[in-house]
Computed example of a mutant assay.
Amino acid sequence: MVGAGLAAVVLFNFFSGEEIAKDEFEKLDNKEFEVVYEVIGTNVKDLDYGIGDNKRESSETVENPKLPWKKKVTMKGIATAPSLSLILGEGDGRADCVITINGKEVKRATAKGEFGTATCVAASPAGHAS
């Protein structure tokens, strides 16, 4: 009888812990964060940046952007990955893509030369409790 009682306590604690973990995951997965995308330089033909959240991610393209270019978006989700890429046009050029999350620069890449490319992809900060 003691063994059955102990098993019930262990099972209760296991399932309670599972519920707590699920609640904590959902709380973190719904945590919003601010992303600032920036492109600085010359001769950028087009750029592509990520938008969305834990339910649906997508991207938007800007052709022949006026530089310097900047866009602020709010995202959420543990698996959401902010991304920014660019391609230079014909002729010489040089440009940087930059991703800043919650005020901290987290990624930077440089494209150089004719049709050069640069891509920045950052991890979501939502998986970190704060």
Rank of each mutant, 00 (worst) to 15 (best):
Gly3Gln: 14
Leu6Met: 13
Leu6Trp: 11
Leu6Pro: 00
Ala7His: 09
Val9Asp: 08
Leu11Met: 14
Leu11Arg: 12
Phe12Gly: 12
Phe15Asp: 08
Ser16Tyr: 15
Gly17Asn: 12
Glu18Asn: 15
Glu18Lys: 14
Lys22Trp: 01
Glu24Val: 15
Leu28Ala: 14
Asn30Gly: 15
Asn30Phe: 02
Glu32Ala: 06
Phe33Gly: 05
Phe33Glu: 00
Val35Thr: 10
Ile40Phe: 05
Asn43Phe: 10
Leu47Pro: 05
Leu47Val: 01
Leu47Ile: 10
Tyr49His: 03
Gly52Glu: 01
Lys55Gly: 02
Arg56Cys: 01
Glu60Asp: 04
Glu60Met: 11
Glu60Trp: 02
Val62Ser: 04
Glu63Asn: 08
Glu63Gln: 08
Lys66Ser: 13
Lys66Asp: 06
Leu67Ala: 07
Lys76Asn: 06
Ile78Met: 04
Ile78Val: 11
Thr80Lys: 07
Ser83Asn: 04
Ser83Thr: 06
Ser85Met: 12
Leu86Pro: 02
Glu90Cys: 01
Glu90Val: 06
Asp92Val: 03
Gly93His: 05
Gly93Gln: 03
Gly93Ser: 02
Ala95Val: 13
Cys97Ser: 11
Thr100Leu: 02
Ile101Trp: 01
Asn102Cys: 09
Ala109Ile: 03
Thr110Asp: 04
Ala111Glu: 09
Ala111Asp: 08
Ala111Trp: 09
Ala111Arg: 10
Thr117Leu: 04
Ala118Leu: 14
Ser124Thr: 07
Pro125Trp: 09
Gly127Leu: 03
Gly127Asp: 01
Ser130Leu: 13
